[in-house]
């Protein structure tokens, strides 16, 4: 067990290293100048800025310096677009917001998606199944930038107690969380339904039925655990993705989360910000995958020996 964890951790380190390396060279290969502004920057000013951010050195040196700074100083450097602010400050300001929003929408997604998937499987090829799958399909197809404004116009506007956007009142989390949770719920419903159908057709379930075990008990005691395995596999990466924020939802609902830093970091060529975020996200993703593997091992005794 300990060996599994250690080997997974080692794999994570390698993957994150490769991820950051690839991102570093990819983002530097992109066209565009991080210091281009609506007003011209003189060659001297540009040179000064490049020297300040160490961008005047050859790429391999910049790459080496970046790692050196991360490892020896625990510092991701300064943001290039938002001058005077450290990447670590931007992350530590925005991550708690995204974490709070992500966790809430994940809990909502799980409590909506898994029951929906179970219902669909139990009423396989009946009205309830179709209804549940239509909802799930809609959840996957209707993207947040459609859903968000629909909620703003049809829920927040008529209800005086909800704001259209913003991050000041406790209730401001509700709409972005609902918008985010739909995607998760939809995937979970489909995965749970598939897993459930698979398990329900197994011999041991048939034996249990033949022995007269009550239907509810068959599901809760015998079917649910193996049926949720695909959903748990999905939840690992989904967890890491959802707690690091969503550009679209943050943009629509004016949420000061982390998702927008990814997109705006790339469009403004804020190399330090993007690399800091990728490193952070990579580590989170590694941890989340490890956790979901551990849960799977806990759920399936067969995995413990393999």
């Amino acid at each position: 067990m300990l060996r599994t964890i250690l080997s997974r951790l080692l794999q994570t380190v390698v993957v994150v290293f490769l991820l950051v390396t690839f991102t570093f060279f990819a983002i530097h290969a992109m066209p565009g100048d991080p210091f281009a502004d609506a007003k011209a920057t003189s060659p001297e000013e540009k040179a000064a800025l490049e020297a300040y951010y160490g961008l005047d050195k050859p790429l391999p040196v910049q790459y080496f310096n970046w790692w050196k700074n991360v490892i020896t100083n625990n510092d991701f450097g300064d943001s290039i677009a938002m001058k005077g602010r450290k990447v670590s400050t931007l992350i530590s300001e925005s991550f708690p917001v995204s974490l709070k929003l992500g966790l809430l929408s994940l809990v909502m997604g799980i409590s909506l998606g898994i029951p929906l998937g179970i219902i669909a499987a139990l009423y396989h090829n009946q009205m309830l199944d179709y209804l549940a799958m239509i909802i799930a399909m809609a959840g996957i197809c209707v993207v947040a930038f459609v859903l968000g404004p629909i909620f703003q116009i049809n829920i927040a506007k008529p209800l005086t107690s909800l704001n259209v956007a913003g991050w000041d009142r406790p209730a401001d989390i509700i709409l972005p969380a609902i918008t985010l949770c739909f995607g998760v719920a939809a995937y979970l419903a489909r995965l749970t339904r598939g897993g459930m159908l698979d398990v329900l057709s197994q011999d041991y379930i048939r034996s249990a039925r033949a022995k007269g075990v009550p239907p509810l008990k068959i599901i809760t005691r015998h079917a649910l655990r193996p049926a949720l395995m695909p959903a748990v596999t999905f939840l690992g990466p989904a967890f890491a993705a959802i707690i690091t924020g969503s550009f679209v939802v943050e943009n629509i609902f004016l949420v000061p989360g982390m998702g927008q830093h990814f997109v705006l970091g790339v469009t403004s060529k804020d190399y330090n910000l993007v690399l800091g975020l990728v490193l952070f996200y990579g580590i989170l993703m590694g941890i989340a995958n490890l956790l979901s593997d551990l849960v799977l091992i806990f759920m399936d005794p067969k995995l413990r020996t393999s």
Binding site: P149, Q152, A156, V164, A165, G166, N251, I252, L254
Partner: peptide, 18 residues
């Protein structure tokens, strides 16, 4: 000062007395 990048959201916020 609110940094509302999405101008559609901004118009909706105005309509919602924000």
């Amino acid at each position: 000062y609110l940094p509302v990048k999405n101008y559609y959201t901004e118009t909706r916020m105005y309509g919602d007395e924000q």
